[in-house]
């Protein structure tokens, strides 16, 4: 049983990781080739050059994750508790826009939010907004784009955790003098924490490395670490720096998940399961 899984992990995970680690410690250029020189300075350079974008990505991903929670919790709650016979229909409607490609969806937002587009154009013509007003190329646009694109990754685990709460437990709380707010605060919310936990992981991790939203909806001041990695790899051919950045991103995410799991507790998840 271990062998096929182990082989799979070795070929598709360990080998690429080791290759990436090796690249991150190489020196050279695209014309003369790269050689492994154990050049740990690549990491120092990467942090010195790009810590701004790093912290920005952290901030954007955090805010976007918070926004997805705020938007999808009521949505998931409503479908789970009030959806009745049409739960699957509502879930399908929620997911419907996401059958369209990620990039196309983001481009559609670019079109909608354009400076003289279908929304801002008329508003400006009617002098409801100043001519200089714009949404694109702001951090708001990028964060909103990320939040929009990753919404299902938050909404679905939340829905699942809310859906599996035993309805008699809710009735028991009502029976024991809890009003609506207390039922939510003391019973429903604590029991939905595994869903929040899973949703945050599924949203924050990809949001942190995302570059599509920043490149389509953002501007020069909203560059994220994903854009930098893409730039260094595909445009500048600075493979070692790009590899080092990827490693730092991975390390930060792993550390973050570890701390997060410790605080919110995989222990408590096991108890709920």
């Amino acid at each position: 049983m271990v062998l096929p899984g182990g082989a799979w992990l070795f070929v598709f995970f360990l080998v690429p990781i080791l290759f990436l680690a090796s690249v991150s410690l190489q020196t050279g250029n695209i014309f003369d080739g790269f050689r492994l020189t154990w050049h740990f300075r690549n990491y120092v350079d990467a942090v010195q050059l790009y810590h701004v974008q790093f912290l920005r990505s952290l901030r954007y991903a955090s805010i976007a994750t918070a926004v997805t929670i705020v938007v999808s919790y009521p949505l998931a709650y409503w479908i789970a508790f009030r959806g009745g016979r049409h739960k699957t229909t509502f879930l399908f409607l929620l997911l419907l826009p996401f059958f369209v490609s990620f990039v196309i969806r983001t481009l559609a937002w670019q079109f909608i939010l354009a400076d003289d587009g279908i929304v801002l154009g008329p508003l400006k013509r009617w002098h409801l907004l100043p001519q200089s007003f714009h949404v694109l190329a702001t951090s708001t646009a990028v964060i909103a784009g990320i939040a929009y694109n990753f919404l299902p990754f938050m909404a679905l685990p939340l829905y699942v955790s809310l859906e599996r709460i035993d309805r008699s437990v809710v009735e028991a709380a009502q029976d024991l003098y809890a009003n609506k707010l207390e039922v939510f605060r003391r019973v429903i919310f604590p029991l939905s924490i595994p869903g929040v936990f899973a949703g945050v992981l599924l949203t924050f991790v990809p949001a942190m490395g995302d570059y599509v939203n920043a490149s389509i909806l953002g501007g020069t001041k909203t560059t994220m670490i994903g854009n930098i990695i893409q730039l260094e790899y595909l445009t500048n051919f600075h493979y070692p720096i790009a590899a080092a950045l990827s490693f730092i991103l991975m390390a930060v995410l792993l550390l973050g998940i570890f701390v997060y799991a410790r605080v919110l507790g995989t222990r408590s998840i096991e108890e709920y399961v």
């Binding site: 035993d166 008699s168 437990v169 009735e171 028991a172 709380a173 009502q174 029976d175 024991l176 003098y177 809890a178 009003n179 019973v187 604590p190 029991l191 408590s268 108890e271 709920y272």
Partner: peptide, 20 residues
Amino acid sequence: MAPYRRNVNTVFQSYALFPH
């Protein structure tokens, strides 16, 4: 009257204990 305002309590068939 809403359940939480009534001075009755229920022992549920499934016990419905709060798992957390």
